[in-house]
């Protein structure tokens, strides 16, 4: 048994418990993206950061991969944590704006705009699908390929894999392809306002004939408030 303090609350957990599990047990919310119950922790998205240690030795760690340690002092919502989380969300929005999951997370964390160059990736390399395929579906049909900028997820040689049973598990767990918003180029877009979270509903001119199929639309919601 390990004793630790999370946000000032003393708690005792089993050996091997991660900080995320300990915090969730106490009912403290920590946003996660690449973490998924039933899959091995991966630590790719960094969204679950918490602050551990004290004073000048305090540092940010990903709670989904960090095991509980005796006497550890954890803060799940310190100013530093919140700042880091917002930054991560902004960056995620910058690369993959059409993901409803990311948009929802962003709006829940009061990210109102993102300041980076907008890209339209359809993958955030969280590796959920890779782990799903390997660990739950026992197929290992897809995996990471290349590195750096070229890193991508897919089948070897980009051909249909022989071991894939088209179970759809990968798509089911993907935060970027479940509930996908369309791009925001006017021809293809439905609304697109959510991409930059600047409220399109106000600038009615440009988006007048467009309809939004997302309920509720993150961007619109922000305006309403």
């Amino acid at each position: 048994m390990i004793n630790l303090t999370i946000n000032g609350i003393e708690t005792t957990v089993d050996k091997g418990t991660t900080l995320l599990e300990a915090a969730q047990f106490l009912g403290l919310p920590i946003p996660t993206l690449c973490h998924m119950e039933g899959l091995t922790p991966y630590g790719a998205c960094r969204l679950c950061v918490v602050e551990i240690g004290e004073g000048s030795r305090a540092r940010l760690v990903t709670s989904c991969t960090y095991p509980a340690e005796e006497g550890l002092k954890v803060r799940t919502a310190s100013r530093r944590v919140v700042k880091a989380r917002k930054m991560i969300l902004e960056l995620l929005l910058a690369s993959c704006p059409q993901s409803k999951v990311i948009q929802d997370l962003a709006s829940a964390h009061e990210v109102r705009q993102q300041r980076f160059r907008q890209e339209y990736e359809n993958c955030i390399l969280c590796g959920r699908c890779v782990r799903m395929c390997e660990e739950q579906m026992m197929a290992k049909a897809i995996g990471f390929r290349g590195r750096g900028e070229q890193r991508s997820i897919g089948t070897p040689f980009d051909v249909k894999s022989e071991v894939c049973r088209t179970c759809g598990g990968c798509m089911y767990v993907c935060p970027a392809c479940q509930l996908r918003c369309t791009y925001n180029e006017p021809e293809r877009a439905i609304c697109g306002g959510c991409a930059n979270l600047s409220p399109p509903c106000i600038e009615k001119e440009k988006f007048k004939d467009m309809m939004c199929y997302m309920h509720p639309c993150v961007a619109c919601e922000i305006v309403d408030r």
Binding site: K140, A141, I142, G143, F144, R145, T155, P156, F157, S161, V163
Partner: peptide, 8 residues
């Protein structure tokens, strides 16, 4: 090994 690993 699986082909994905080798390819990776």
């Amino acid at each position: 090994k699986s082909l994905v690993d080798v390819y990776g």
